[in-house]
Design a protein around this nucleic acid. Structure first.
Lengths: 175, 175
DNA sequence: GGCGGGTGGGTGCAAAATCAACTAACTGTG
DNA sequence: CACAGTTAGTTGATTTTGCACCCACCCGCC
């Protein structure tokens, strides 16, 4: 359901193939959602037979035909409905916090290793986000669309930064 | 898979019924995981026939029999394996950020409403976490187990607080 | 000439998760 | 006495997700 709306959102920006959608999920959108390509193609098919999108086959020389998906008026409507239907809140879900919660089963070194490993992974993700932001920073604040898109990346950056601080605090005070 | 490990973790603390497990997911654990009760009972059955837990039916007067689930040695082993197998990182997934990303489809008031609604919900969740923490704060730092459990709650608190700051920043600078 | 990587699109299957009911008995409140 | 809520567990259907494959053809490189 959420995936269907996100795809509609992307199609709203510009018509796309499933392949291009997947690339967006892997890059511009990866800080708040990702999806398997199988799932993308299936959702796309579903959107089409719900009448929220249409396909136009664009032949290419040298490359496979593009199945360009266009959002329809009905599609725009459900997207707007989703955006107006209230702020979504999905259940918090973090397996790593589960590991920390039960980490007392390990010895001290095991716990420290767990936290340090996560610290490294988090730093890596944060650096990735920061480099993504460099590409947009200044030109962003201009129009509302770019501002909001950049804002979601800022959110991800804040979250990762907060986690780093937390990890350091835990490592420091671990009894 | 993660759910199975979390249940083992809880059973490791003390033998429990599916019903009690569900209550833990709804209260002590809700800041990093939640699960449907159907899923809990099914996973529990699966743990039993994998040999990671055993059931003991405890009859009660006035109430239905308790199906007390006990973790086995094999169960303790796989739990430890999971804890030692490296810090987990699940793909970031937040439908609300999706709404913000595409919120430019709405007019300014719609966007503000979306953000304010989320602000309220986040404040509510934060308050809940803060009141949960009051119950443990001081006695916590004592042993390692309590410290780590409290730490995961602190993590959730930091995340919610960071989100509040972010929401305010976005609301303030929204063009 | 073969190999890796990119473009583009799929299928099949299984596990994980959610939704909605339904059983069945007890307990407290108005 | 009726009704809501708690304790305890179960079933069926459906959706969502993830993994592993598969097709076809292109390009550039060694």
């Amino acid at each position: 359901m959420v995936l269907a709306r996100l795809i509609l959102g992307l199609l709203c920006l510009s018509p796309m193939t499933g392949y291009e959608l997947k690339k967006h999920f892997d890059s511009s959108i990866n800080h708040f959602w990702n999806a398997d390509k199988a799932q993308i193609y299936r959702t796309l098919a579903q959107l089409v037979d719900q009448g929220y999108a249409t396909v136009r086959t664009v032949p290419q020389s040298n490359y496979p035909d593009r199945q360009e998906h266009h959002i329809t008026e009905a599609g725009r409507e459900v997207l707007n409905q989703w955006l107006s239907s209230g702020a979504a809140r999905s259940p918090e879900r973090d397996p790593f916090m589960g590991q920390v919660f039960f980490a007392a089963e390990l010895e001290r070194e095991g716990i420290e290793q767990l936290l340090l490993e996560r610290r490294q992974a988090t730093q890596y993700v944060l650096d990735d986000y920061l480099s993504q932001r460099e590409g947009i920073d200044m030109r962003a604040a201009a129009d509302r669309r770019s501002f909001l898109m950049a804002a979601t990346l800022d959110h991800a950056i804040r979250q990762q930064a907060a986690e780093l601080e937390w990890l350091d605090a835990v490592l420091e005070h671990l009894p």
